[in-house]
Design a binder for these strands. Structure first.
Lengths: 286, 286
DNA sequence: GTTCCGCATGAATCGATAG
DNA sequence: ACTATCGATTCATGCGGAA
């Protein structure tokens, strides 16, 4: 069966440069691309570091493949933030938006990840960076969006409810559902649910020892619920420690992860395997 | 006295196009420019409606004057958000950032106004807009910034930590300030106030009687405290209902407001007069 | 078992120092 | 003059050991 041959990359972590790897993928085969590429010149030790001024070209050659493999109804969510260079925000992110549109992408919206616990620091001319961009790109004006899947209790209810939960409660719930959002969602008022905005208030996860997860798992969980249904395929071309794949697997979606570091691939695979053991029989039904 | 003649625009609301009006102002005379210009194609009936594609050129000719009248140590804060055009976010804001830098501005940072109560609405392909940009531009890398003026109480976790300490503990610590501080002092107490991040979580003020203020007065108050001291001059070239001027006056700063609508000028003047009556003897000491 | 406290650490940034 | 490296700064959170 032809499809089976073409699609034998699903639920795999693939070692290599995503640009080359994706060239072997068929057109229009992915439902959601969620990724957080290495930021310009950041994580130099592990990724080699792309200079800010070269970043846009470096990224665009990969984005061309993203565009090709994405289904017309699919979505591409890019988590990125510009660095400070010589006292100024560098413009590589906004240049990227301008240029990626020329490839045919539509810049549908910009979500904000408002961080509960930003990286510390004190400087005379700026405050700590408390947010990151989550750029939403699409191939068409009409795409799949399942807004009901991410509905939340009204803000006051959420606050009061969250405060009542003890740490033990939170941990127990997290083990069962794998999602902090789910815990609040299920334990609080189930009626009176409202739609969220394009601002996502969420903590970072600095407590992951071995691997430095750059975003909390609730972040890909949120977007995977919003833009896919069970059985869909989620791609992260910079899989890193595997968070996106873990989230997809937990939610009953298929995943594809690519990374240029062998070490990351191994780590991602290990986390996926562990998750399989722990969560296989406790998946939520969303 | 020459200065008196040059500076006779202070604490005035001036009717006219800010581009023309500002040409009469001396160089380097303003400490802070805080403004929220009419968004592209918004308020078409009142402002004549600048089309999105013409917006950048329209704005830049004004920004040139902003640059000239701002002190080298001053700051320009621009509250703006791109509209959705044909299902996409328009790029006029990010184009504006690229081009304004060519005038000599430094793009120091981007603050986010995270709205507590976004405008209601429901669409099939996007959520409500819960944030706006507050772009910070400067003439130099070194500028005036008074971070202590906007310090805030720490988050709940840190607060709980401090609350656990007895009063005796606190007193004892306060006495031995200089050397040999015990570890709890640095981690818990003495943290009555912490520095904020570049995300500002604030409600809108949709309930203002006659005028529709586009931002709450706490927003200019925050930036005026952060970037000016008493006696400094705050300019809003699109004063609208006068919120920026009211904030400046309340804080003991001098204001200058400009608007192309006579109606707005009258409204702003009225609000400023009322504030004078109510707050003259109750100014905060910051 | 439970609570409490100390501590490590995470997509950072600036200014000074050294080559 | 330009780059490279280092120390200081700082806050939210979970972990582990102690009470």
């Amino acid at each position: 069966m032809r499809v089976a041959i073409d699609m034998d990359f699903i639920n795999k972590i693939i070692f290599g440069d995503c640009e080359k790897i994706l060239k072997k993928f068929p057109d229009k085969s992915i439902d959601l691309i969620f990724t957080s590429p290495p930021y310009a010149d950041a994580r130099r030790r592990t990724y080699g570091g792309v200079a800010p001024d070269e970043y846009v070209d470096w990224f665009l050659s990969k984005a061309e493949q993203f565009l090709r493999v994405l289904k017309p109804t699919g979505t591409f969510v890019l988590n990125i933030k510009e660095r400070v260079v010589k006292g100024e925000r560098h413009t590589y992110v906004i240049e990227l938006i301008m240029r990626i549109k020329q490839q045919g992408w539509l810049w549908t919206d910009e979500f904000i990840w408002h961080k509960k616990n930003p990286f510390p620091g004190k400087w005379p001319n700026r405050f700590r960076d408390g947010w990151e961009r989550l750029l939403q790109f699409n191939r068409q004006r009409k795409f799949n969006m399942y807004q009901e899947a991410v509905m939340i209790p009204p803000s006051d209810a959420t606050k009061a409810c969250a405060l009542r939960l003890t740490d033990a409660d939170k941990t127990r719930r997290k083990i069962k559902t794998g999602s902090g959002l789910d815990s609040r969602l299920s334990s609080c008022v189930n009626r009176n649910m409202v739609y969220p905005t394009n601002v996502i208030y969420m903590a970072t996860e600095s407590w992951n020892r071995g691997h430095s997860a750059v975003f909390p798992i609730d972040l890909p969980i949120w977007f995977i619920k919003l833009f896919t249904v069970k059985g869909d395929i989620v791609l992260d071309p910079f899989i890193g420690s595997g968070t996106t794949a873990v989230a997809a697997k937990q939610l009953g979606r298929n995943y594809v992860g690519v990374d240029i570091l062998k070490k990351s691939c191994l780590l991602a695979e290990e986390r996926i395997t562990q998750i399989k053991k722990y969560y296989d029989n406790t998946l939520t039904t969303n």
